[in-house]
């Protein structure tokens, strides 16, 4: 994927999040504080408003600026987490104008490390990591099996969706959902869900 396609993907992300805003907020209402959709939609709308600045810029610059915008505008928990994820991915893509499947895996690795560091969380705690890590793993093995970039990301989306289903079966131990304890059972994690939407838009663009 070339750098001039990235703004298109960011626009699609913004559209998808805005479409799913109420659903994400409802998910968050059930186990958290009911603002995930609202905050994400506000953040991606701000990213969309910065797209003209991205013309002629490399992918690293675009992702880093997107990350900083999310930190600043989304705020809450999703701001620092998604912001860190995009900024870390941006560092991987520094100076690059094209993203290959291998680059994308490196981006996901950096993003996952960033989210784990910032959120002090691991897999299995009912967080976005429960979608991110299986998605990354599925993409890695798809690439190993010789599948191309779009097919690999498609496999990643499937794994992310399964990860979202998995979050229904576990009790939250991180984030505000941890406070409702066992009452978080049966509910899917809003962060894992929003990550899956973002990955879906990437998959659709490839």
């Amino acid at each position: 994927m070339k750098s001039d396609r990235i703004p298109e993907v960011l626009t699609a992300m913004s559209r998808k999040i805005s479409e799913k805003k109420d659903f994400l907020t409802d998910l968050d209402n059930a186990i958290g504080d009911g603002d995930h959709g609202i905050n994400m939609a506000r953040g991606f709308a701000a990213v969309e408003s910065r797209l003209p600045e991205f013309e002629g810029k490399d992918i690293g610059y675009i992702l880093k600026t997107t990350g900083m915008t999310l930190v600043s505008v989304v705020a809450g928990s999703a701001g620092p987490l998604y912001g860190t994820a995009f900024m870390k991915a941006g560092m991987v893509m520094n100076g690059k104008n094209e993203m290959t499947a291998d680059d994308f895996i490196e981006c996901l690795n950096a993003a996952i490390d960033g989210v784990m560091m910032r959120g002090k969380a691991v897999q299995g705690e009912k967080t976005m990591l429960d979608a991110m890590i299986p998605a990354r793993d599925a993409i890695v093995s798809a690439v190993k099996d010789g599948r191309n970039f779009p097919e690999a990301v498609k496999a990643g989306v499937e794994a992310a969706r399964e990860g979202v289903e998995y979050t229904k079966t576990i009790i939250a131990t991180k984030g505000r959902a941890a406070y409702v304890g066992e009452r978080s059972l049966g509910h899917q994690d809003p962060g894992a869900t929003s990550f899956t939407y973002l990955l879906e838009t990437i998959s659709e663009a490839l």
Binding site: D35, V71, A75, S77
Partner: peptide, 12 residues
């Protein structure tokens, strides 16, 4: 001060 029930952003 963040948005209602939402942490303020780091830069603020």
């Amino acid at each position: 001060a963040g948005a209602v029930y939402t942490s303020p952003a780091a830069d603020q």
